[in-house]
Simulated assay, not measured.
Amino acid sequence: MKKPFLHSESAADVGMEIQQSYDRLLETTRKWIDILHFDPLLETGLTPRDIVWRKNKSRLYRYVNHKGYKHRTPILMLYALINKAYILDLRPGMSLVEYLVDQGFDVYLLDWGEFDWEDRDLSFSQLIVDYISRAVYKVCQYSNVNELSILGYCMGGTMATMYASLYPQPRIKNMIYVAAPIDFEDAGLSSIWLKASVFDVDKVTDTFSLIPKEFVDLGLKMLNPVNNFVATYTRLWKAIDEGVSIEAWKALNKWVDDNINFPGKAYREWVKYLYQENALVKDEFIINGRKVVLSNIDAALLVLTGKTDHIVLPQQSTPILELSSSQDKTNLQYPVGHGGLVFGSRARNEVYPTIAEWLAQRS
């Protein structure tokens, strides 16, 4: 009797060959990724700049504009405490800072530096009062103005909100929120994981004092583990298809793994008062003995969100539109994730020009 074409032994052989081919492909891909990752000469944050003010480890940059200023109102950029500033100035051709400078804006950025053991007791009160407020004063002093625009990316937008609600002078003329959390009622998986009944933030903070960057990094990546641990490889080919340079792709992956420690006191406040108590939208968050009242904010608002952002969900950003007193409000959503608002072809071709045009009309 004639045997079937695929009997059990041959099927097993075919399966083994497929598995071996897959393993070889995966190993080759990983080797190429390792080669691409290893670039000791890869530089980021290349837009020329001057340091115009320092406090401890923080530095206030003013970016050099050789073409002259077309717009009088300066821009101060703020970003998250746990990241490096160069996400806003990644590589030439893929830099929001560079784009705005080329459009004739007077651009500043407050770089937090890298927090270490001696910074473990830094609180949001100190960060707002001693750092952001002084940086704002220096921006206005160097640009010889009495008003400015603030762009806050991620947590930088949250802190910008705290500052703007408490300081009427110098006047904040324009506020740009880029994936910035304001309402923490529904923060996706973060709301579940950080719920007070299951996450003891006091115990975590008392144990570490200074929250290690690895602890924060792993937590963020586990919000979307497939994308963060596996899709790194597929993003390379997608980036190539979209016309993004290999250098820009490597720079982004460098930034993703280049986090910094989180001061323990600020971390406790961030989790307890925002994620667990949602104090900001309730006007119950306290800075230096004063309540942060969102209705005090009357600047023109531009709120940018990513439809697929799993770190800051769109509904976390948009409540500022209703809670502020602003009469000039714009809300735009893009089909991207958290980083896609500042990196990638859509950021370069759509988000950057939108920010520049919106600011130009109000500066």
Rank of each mutant, 00 (worst) to 15 (best):
G15Y: 09
A356R: 03
M94Q: 14
G156Q: 03
A12P: 10
T158D: 03
A164C: 08
C140K: 00
D119Q: 04
L78T: 03
K221T: 02
L274G: 02
Y177C: 07
I246Q: 10
E185Y: 13
S58H: 07
R91W: 10
A356I: 00
K84G: 11
S190A: 12
F184E: 04
P353H: 04
E9K: 11
T232R: 13
S133G: 00
L194T: 11
S123V: 02
A80H: 08
T158C: 07
M1T: 13
Q103F: 01
K329C: 10
E247W: 11
L321P: 01
A196Y: 13
P4A: 14
G337L: 00
I150W: 09
I150M: 04
V230W: 15
N228C: 10
D241Q: 12
I182M: 11
L25F: 13
L220P: 10
I320V: 08
L220C: 14
R134Q: 09
S190N: 10
M1N: 14
F229V: 03
K173Y: 04
K2G: 12
Y352I: 13
L60K: 06
K3L: 15
K265S: 11
S21R: 11
D39W: 03
W53E: 01
M162Q: 09
M16Q: 09
I33E: 15
S324M: 08
I87E: 13
S245G: 09
K195I: 08
K57S: 14
